[in-house]
Simulated scan of single mutants.
Amino acid sequence: MAIKNILALVVLLSVLGVSVAIPFPNLDLRYYKSKCPNTESIVRTVTAKYVLRQKSLAAALLRMHFHDCFVRGCDASLLLKSPAKDMERDAIPNLSVRGYEVVDAAKRELERKCPGVVSCADVLSLVARDAVELIGGPWWEVPLGRRDGRISRKSEANLPSPFAGIAELKKNFADKGLNSKDLVVLSGAHTIGISNCGLVNPRIYNFTGKGDFDLSMNPSYVRTLKKRCKPTDFRSPVDMDPGSAKKFDSHYYNAVAQKKGLFISDSALLNDIDTGFYVKAQVLTNGASFNKDFAESMVKLGKVGILTGKQGEIRNRCAFVN
């Protein structure tokens, strides 16, 4: 069946409420079985070397994967760099992205064992999965066979904003083939990691320009944040999930339900029937389905805008095109 006919069928089934997986040519769980059979174990070994020594890297690597996939698709274009500082990684939202050394180290080891075979895009997808699992999060199968993009533009790094409302967020995700459930599930990645006072100060000190705070926030949480973030402090770190920022679990939804979402985009999840229901369901069930849901949404994210077959290339070094 032609791809365009398959996609038309997918759209029809989606309208009818039927869940269906979209097939991707040349993307396979055993893609490297004969070409580089130890790909996954090599990546995991390298990732563990870094993450077990510095567990905060798990959140950073997960964020890196998300930022890559949301611009030009999961093609490792975020990893490219240039002296002109005009690549994706040079855009303001990506200046705080870190963990490149983990991906580079895994790629170097793969090049030593299987030169010119494994793409940086696949390495990044595997590193993100392994980093999450290494700190106690879920594990998921990663279909492989992505190719690396040759284009990276700073101007294209239009990522979902932490200041976005629910309508904008849903559109951001829909544009990538991801639905409301994926939005609320992947927002759960905020259960780990940190942000900074600069991104929260406007909400707690001068939300409407009158020296007030965002009324969608819990007043007690605002007081706590003010102790951490003084009016002129834009650099101090702030936990994304207050009380549970180092553990991958469903506690993030408890925080959101208590109006303790750090970003406007976190609080916005309560402003939609579907995402709000999911938040409340995870609180009531103590996150019974979160790990499974997160794994499924990560697989979907990893298929956004992929290059396969003869598209793109297999980079020798992740930071530079061949």
Rank of each mutant, 00 (worst) to 15 (best):
Q311M: 14
Q54D: 15
A295N: 07
P242S: 07
P162N: 11
R129I: 01
I92P: 02
K303N: 14
A288R: 10
E296D: 15
F320Y: 14
E111H: 04
A245I: 00
F294P: 03
Q311L: 08
S289I: 02
K176G: 00
R108N: 12
P160F: 08
P115I: 00
V299D: 03
L186E: 05
R53E: 15
S236L: 10
S161K: 06
L79C: 09
R108W: 06
K176T: 04
K300D: 14
L16F: 11
A48E: 14
I192F: 06
L57T: 11
V304D: 05
A164H: 07
R146M: 09
L178S: 00
D90N: 14
R44C: 03
L225G: 06
L270K: 07
N5G: 07
F263Y: 15
D86P: 04
S236Y: 07
L199V: 04
V279I: 11
I151H: 08
Y32E: 04
Y221G: 04
A106P: 11
L95C: 10
I192G: 06
R108E: 15
R235T: 12
S14R: 09
V102G: 03
G73A: 03
L61T: 05
D293N: 12
L159C: 05
I204E: 04
M217S: 01
A91T: 02
P219D: 09
D266Y: 04
C197H: 05
K171Q: 15
E313C: 10
G177Y: 05
P93M: 08
P237E: 09
P138Y: 10
P162H: 09
D86F: 03
I151L: 15
R315D: 08
V123G: 04
S216K: 12
K171T: 13
I42T: 12
G305M: 09
V117Y: 02
G309Y: 00
L52R: 12
A8P: 03
A189H: 14
V222Y: 05
F163C: 04
F277V: 01
T39W: 03
M87S: 13
P242E: 14
N158D: 14
S19K: 11
S155W: 09
V118S: 07
S96D: 13
I42K: 04
V238A: 08
P219Q: 07
D130K: 00
D175P: 00
L9D: 14
G193C: 08
G193D: 05
N94Q: 09
K226L: 06
I306H: 00
R44T: 04
R72T: 09
K35V: 02
I6G: 05
K49L: 09
V184W: 05
L269C: 08
F277H: 12
W139E: 11
R112I: 06
T224F: 11
I273M: 11
A21T: 13
D266N: 15
P242D: 06
K230Q: 15
A2W: 13
T208H: 12
G145A: 06
V321I: 12
K81P: 01
F213W: 14
I22T: 12
P138F: 10
